[in-house]
Design a protein around this nucleic acid. Sequence first.
DNA 1: AATCTTATTGTAAAATTGACAATATCCCTA
DNA 2: TAGGGATATTGTCAATTTTACAATAAGATT
Lengths: 245, 245
Amino acid sequence: MTGFNNFFKSAFTVDNVIFGFDEGDLKVLLIKRGEDPYEGKWALPGYFVYPNEDLDSAAVRVLKELTGLTDVYLEQVKTFGTVNRHPFGRVITIAYFSLVKINRYKLQPASIALKAKWHSISEVKQLAFDHKEILDSCFERLKWVVRTRPVGFELLPPKFTLTELQHLYEAILETDLDKRNFRKKILSMDLLVDLDELQEGVAHRPAKLYQFDREKYEKFLSEGFSFELKESKKKEVKKEPATNS
Amino acid sequence: MTGFNNFFKSAFTVDNVIFGFDEGDLKVLLIKRGEDPYEGKWALPGYFVYPNEDLDSAAVRVLKELTGLTDVYLEQVKTFGTVNRHPFGRVITIAYFSLVKINRYKLQPASIALKAKWHSISEVKQLAFDHKEILDSCFERLKWVVRTRPVGFELLPPKFTLTELQHLYEAILETDLDKRNFRKKILSMDLLVDLDELQEGVAHRPAKLYQFDREKYEKFLSEGFSFELKESKKKEVKKEPATNS
DNA sequence: AATCTTATTGTAAAATTGACAATATCCCTA
DNA sequence: TAGGGATATTGTCAATTTTACAATAAGATT
């Protein structure tokens, strides 16, 4: 292997776009960096991959150290490796996204982070490194995944209402959906269990609670079933309210 | 950056799944490795990424050195980084796939390759490293891409018949398609130019030649058009002829 | 001119999508 | 407990898309 030594001078990290859903809004978990580079800047949680660690394991570790969660949906999206993206040397990063039930855990700021905080996707304007670009890629991927596989449920509590589910899809796809058509479509897939329970603590007619039937989904999958939501017209672009200028 | 030095001992490569289409069959370009490790084994063309080289550039370089082609469709798919996947040390690889017009070039076996050869996808059983897994991932991705964006044309000569196009889709999607329905669907997208030319040299009624209208496609895209072929039932699984056993 | 081979084309039934608004139910307050 | 408030729930019809299906057309070959 003489001659190859020059190649063994790089490092790689994983960065994790952790999505959550709260108050009708799609959120991403960001950390305020506690060390160089970009100390004090908001960034995606991530870290170097250890020499004896698989990539997926590293992504799981980063997630666990920050949130304490282990059993979550996690998927590799894309690798970013522009030559000068990291001030310490050649560092490429493998981007993952994960979907967590936002109320299920307590943030556990890892040593690398001064603090961690949920941000509304739409309000994230810039981040350390090339993390904004990574976030955008993962958001695009999420849009596709959510139309293609029933993973939306990973973002909701185990019991949810159809309206909550619809709001989730609307937030992710950035469209408005027709209530009646959405319900028809979702229910026709026969992946939800009607729990015969009602929402509590709301000051109006409570909605029925449903649960995702994972077993049935696995069964469908093995029979060649394909979850598919049609792409629809874009929600008209929100006009930025004309700010002072 | 004290303490991080231990991370800067890795390397990364790009591996390229180069698809072509010939004789009604989807092909992949493999090389017989001319050096360690796995010398003499069939593998995906790939190489280390140079310290001052972007990932995409490396993929382009690998493709060019092998085929002489530069202006081809190329897309990053996934990164593979199992700890012990490479005998020389920690080496992760970023997998790309590309689509080439198989008759448009002469193979130029690079220094790393004893020889390069097109293999029918279905006949590739095992490869060096984890390359078979990489190939499978890229093939899956191609199936999705081809239903989602009109990139199939990248695999055909500039002028092609509708039957050729259909055979291409059938090879990639591993399904049979209905002739009339396929034509209706494709033509209704209004992305093909009827060249008013006929196929030559065939011993039967010659078919009309068409050309992909890239400009029109760009225009449609900017207007929010979405190319979409519906997923269809799987072609019934070919039963392996019972071999001697 | 007859034959061979592949190209080309249409129609009707079925399934899906998309648009659209009235009624039902529970909570809360007076 | 009656009325108002708020959201939940539900159905129909038109339009579009998908699917299944086979007869005729046209150039090449003999």
